[in-house]
Design a protein around this nucleic acid. Structure first.
Lengths: 237, 237
DNA sequence: CTACTCATGTAACACGTTACATGATTTC
DNA sequence: GAAATCATGTAACGTGTTACATGAGTAG
């Protein structure tokens, strides 16, 4: 169970109360893995029963009762074993919207378009939240922070799909027996991604602070991408 | 519950057996929404109890017992109500791998890299499966078919993230206080996506089969993207 | 004095997985 | 004759949500 082990990981950093763990999942892991009260507190009890955590302290902070949990050696061992075990699967795209999409031919064009628009709005909302997370993390550094990078890039891809789908639906062109994106388009997007990766890979292995004022490989990549956009815009027929 | 209503949608197309529904979820909705036997058969019974489906026929096909289910008027009404109700939320990125990633600073560089590589391999496997679905759907047309477009574009984005993460990890550059992708990179990728969308939007409203031999807007877009790739490759410093 | 946040929990339910159980037909 | 596929189901368990329940402190 991932949640149990993630809680152990937090307690391994420092002992904390159920409420503090709750705040972490509400704010720090926002949009990734939400945890309800009805799941968190029973999980803490279950962790205690397994001997992986102990209720270290019960503080009476001005009438309020706080239970501070701490990890045990057994808990630490269980956590590290979980952490070292690679995840061997990736999740399905199990969205209720996609299940509904199968039957969209039964809807009027107006109904279908409206539903796709709602999805685009929700995607934009989520993008906005990820941008906020990114801002909040600015100047910090960790694996955790990179998660907002994934959120942004995945949601932009999702948005691309939805807008293209909306467009094709509006024009009634889903009957043209062609995919939304051609194989060539997918391959080209893939190629573009590869170029981004190559640019990242061309960063110097040793950070060289003395060159801070100069053009970094990242700047260079952005300059190239920028030019590329001007190029395609200008070449529009 | 989405599954119940999706089953109703299938039965609304034509009556079928539990096994036929099972095959649909195994093959047609592969990688999107898998359903186990232990969930399917109880769900069918529950649908019957609610009066949304009826066991229309029990065929003794050479010793094998087949139960053919058919949708009722009440079932049809429930299905259409579900179908017409827009999904007001989008799913979280609830991947066990991401929960683990929070604590990757506790792993050795080798362990971290290995785990990221496993994820990349699984992503490639899934991409391969989506390409197969695309091929299987070639020449057909429906909303359902577009789902593989989403799968491909989302997985390519995921792959971009993983490879960049692996690269930064290998170089120990996650401590450089900079995001995996800069704001500019995200904006530029977004711009590129917008151009793909614009190209899709510029398709003629009326399919004109007589121009089939000519350069379609899609071909035109691919030509531009191709040029763009040559341009950035050539401009490499 | 009202509403919100802090703080902790329980109970019922919903959804989903895994393992088990049975038995016939078809393919190698 | 062994293995895979066709065909249907049950039981136990794991995970997660929603609603409920309680009570103190703090900001408007």
């Amino acid at each position: 169970m991932s949640l149990k082990h993630a809680i152990l990981g937090l307690l391994d950093r420092s002992p904390r109360t159920g409420y503090e763990i709750k705040i972490f999942f509400r704010d720090a892991v926002k949009n990734f893995w939400s945890v309800s009260d009805g799941q968190l507190y029973p999980t803490l009890r279950s962790l205690a029963e397994e001997g992986w955590v102990v209720k270290a302290e019960t503080v009476q902070d001005g009438g309020l009762t706080k239970h501070v949990y701490a990890i045990t050696d057994a808990g630490r061992a269980a956590f590290m074993e979980w952490l070292r075990t690679p995840e061997r699967s990736i999740p399905e795209l199990k969205e209720p919207f996609l299940l509904k999409l199968i039957f969209f031919d039964r809807l009027s064009k107006e109904d279908a378009l409206h539903q796709i628009e709602v999805q685009i709005r929700r995607t934009d909302d989520a993008l906005e939240e990820y941008r906020e997370i990114r801002s909040a993390h600015a100047g910090t550094s960790s694996f955790q922070r990179t998660m907002s990078d994934l959120g942004l890039i995945i949601l932009e891809a999702r948005r691309l799909f939805l807008v293209a789908l909306k467009d094709m639906t509006a024009r009634g062109q889903l009957s043209r027996l062609e995919p939304l994106f051609s194989d060539e388009t997918i391959d080209l997007v893939k190629e573009l991604f590869l170029q981004v990766i190559e640019s990242v890979a061309s960063w110097p292995a040793e950070p060289d602070d003395e060159l801070a004022g100069d053009l970094t490989p990242r700047d260079e990549m952005n300059r190239r991408l920028q030019q590329l956009l001007v190029f395609t815009r200008g070449g529009s027929s």
